[in-house]
Design a protein around this nucleic acid. Sequence first.
DNA 1: CGAACCTTTGATGGCACTCAATACAGGTGG
DNA 2: CCACCTGTATTGAGTGCCATCAAAGGTTCG
Lengths: 238, 238
Amino acid sequence: MRTDIHNSEIPVLCLACKARHGGICGALEPDQLLRLGRQTGRREVAPGTELIAAGVQIDGYANILSGVVKLTKLLPDGRQQIVGLQFAPDFLGRPFAESSDVSAEAASTVRLCLFPRSALEEMVRQSPGLEHRLHEQALRELDDAREWMMILGQKTAAEKVASFLLLLGRHVDPYAAGFSGTFEIPLRRADIADFLGLTIETVSRQLSHLRKAGIIMIQKNRSVTVCDISALELASGA
Amino acid sequence: MRTDIHNSEIPVLCLACKARHGGICGALEPDQLLRLGRQTGRREVAPGTELIAAGVQIDGYANILSGVVKLTKLLPDGRQQIVGLQFAPDFLGRPFAESSDVSAEAASTVRLCLFPRSALEEMVRQSPGLEHRLHEQALRELDDAREWMMILGQKTAAEKVASFLLLLGRHVDPYAAGFSGTFEIPLRRADIADFLGLTIETVSRQLSHLRKAGIIMIQKNRSVTVCDISALELASGA
DNA sequence: CGAACCTTTGATGGCACTCAATACAGGTGG
DNA sequence: CCACCTGTATTGAGTGCCATCAAAGGTTCG
């Protein structure tokens, strides 16, 4: 448990930051945080804003303070696949490469803490703990990506949609007590379709099936309540 | 470029090791390598040997010296997805976790350099360069996994098989001059199917299509020659 | 209230899966 | 060396799931 006795040395903006403890900044000492703080900038962007373009020179990174970011890959003919979702306090960007091969786009309103590439590289050189945090996140993302490969490659449309809801539900409130079972889906149907390798019509149909079966309730297209979580798990095929 | 003046201090087995420079051991100083060398053991395993079991306590890691390892995930009803392929000199194992959520199996005859979990953890604490190498590999695997998510989610059977051949061809001889275009597929049809989210029949049909179109030639089921690489790229959809 | 966007629902068709049979390769023992 | 056998791959016929095409219903803005 950090005591933060020297709070006066920590940038004001960092004091209440979600990335401050859960994110990568938790690996930094107060004086490093202070120096990094001088180079950071906060920004709030609207849904749909492109945050990282695939194949373009990387000049900076960011921490996600709130909102949801989708990582996408695009085929020449326009087909799209969502290959990752990131939430606060995740680190956003591809370290140690000239460019990313995925694009990043704000799925909801997103607040970011931006910092230049050189700042990250300097911090990594000075603080092995920082690279360890980045490494841990990369390994978590790798675990997630492989879980999704299983879903994409083997599961039926019904199982995919059920798995997606479970995935989201878990992320919203990971094993917390008093979980109401209600949460907002931070994606449109088109995004869910791109995420699961389905069409929007199929996604809609499967959600309707789950609703008619009494397993979930849907309010205003975005808000979902899971009524029967064990039935949902059964439907997810895992 | 390493000069290796003090070769006498380096374990004999490491001198000609593929993982020695390309793999993680390249980040170690001679004295660290010497200490690690005392705790390592070499092993050669037959195709089909399980190297890592999902959900089981991790007690050691390994470097792949030769051969191909497939990483798999299994659904309760038996459906299987291959979520990664690893080649020499890759590091094998999931650092910083109690257990892996993927299984690893030798796809071909595989030679390994094994070392206990404690040895890796000690080395990581002592040598930040080692964690950096592990981090780089994790990021590469993440890039690969996301590329496969695109293939699994969006591509047709024909595109999947063409993409798979390109992937293998690139890995066998990455942009080397004098690439003959012939290589061995280190997987059975069943593995290719599990990798691409198809059935063995569909894989076989698509390979036959490519063969009849004059784009590839197949010898003895395992050896493939790419006759028209641009046609193959076209067929891969990317 | 109206317009743009998003979502749902229905009808139809195609791609890949399933089931089934045949062909082939590698290894073993007669 | 050949017969046999097991595991593996190919090819064919039929079915089903999901994509496509089309239209109507909701939601969220200005």
